[in-house]
Design a binder for these strands. Structure first.
Lengths: 146, 146
DNA sequence: GGATATTTGTTAGCATTGCTAACTGTTAGC
DNA sequence: GCTAACAGTTAGCAATGCTAACAAATATCC
């Protein structure tokens, strides 16, 4: 028994593409207005939601190479956003932790981003809200298996 | 007569946010795999779809300041992606045009991006395809009025 | 008509963020 | 224990964003 399929029109794909770009561009503005942006916010959310990470883990989570993350961590340390220390059992690794201040700022920034997105959907009808859920499910499935 | 409303759950917003980030990150990879990326592809699509632009217009369309676009145009000229010349009536302005090669490469890159997105939706059921259309409509409406 | 202001683009110089290559120190394996 | 592999750091390059300061052309205002 096969599942019925009906891929969306190319036109819809194009519009979706364009909208995704515009959305992220807008979010970038939200971040910049609030101070620390991009890589800092992203690395901090990993540290807050997944807990302390080694440099390698954090670099992998963010999809960047070790030297890039090394420099970012150093900068964030100087700004009091994270703390780093050598772990007990393996003297090579470092353990990076979000500082209370880093945690607070990240959560605030995240809140603003989510609020900005929520605004876009606030006028949704019940049917549209349901459609959004459906699309989120579909996208999550596709991205996870990719 | 008021329209019934039912904003989506915060959880759905969060997931949508996360998925949008993952999607764009993936597209960046697609671009990088193919050579020229980000600002070049984006500026070229403005030149191809809206036609020749002055430097100021192009900078505004891309949301960057004039010096940034000035440098980008110079680099793209050197790479044979665009051509620039002084306009007839106002000797201050330049008229930037996509070269045939720039046009071709941009269209190819765009095709790859859209194909990557299409892949995500190719297993959609008819109901899911309809839901995507609904969300695209809703998003477009919200972003346009913002 | 000519002095002054505005507009358009460029140049110079700085910050951030990505990379690779080369290095240091630590751990693991033979 | 010697050597190989691993974890991070440092140095240096490229791309992309910015502001400040400038040159040239055009508009504006007596």
């Amino acid at each position: 028994m096969s599942i019925p399929r009906k891929p969306p029109e190319p036109k819809v794909i194009e519009r979706f593409h364009h909208l995704a770009i515009r959305l992220l561009r807008g979010l970038k503005r939200v971040d910049e207005a609030h101070g620390f942006s991009g890589p800092r916010a992203s690395a901090l959310s990993v540290l807050v939601f997944r807990g302390p990470q080694s440099l390698g883990e954090l670099a992998a989570a963010e999809g960047v190479k070790a030297p890039t993350m090394s420099r970012l961590v150093k900068a964030m340390q100087a700004e009091g956003l994270v703390e780093a220390e050598v772990t007990s059992h393996d003297q090579r690794q470092i353990r990076i932790v979000a500082s209370p201040r880093g945690r607070r700022l990240m959560l605030k920034a995240r809140e603003l981003r989510l609020a900005a997105i929520a605004t876009l959907f606030e006028k949704a009808t019940p049917a549209e809200a349901k459609a959004l859920e459906t699309v989120v499910e579909l996208l999550a499935r596709s991205l996870d298996e990719a």
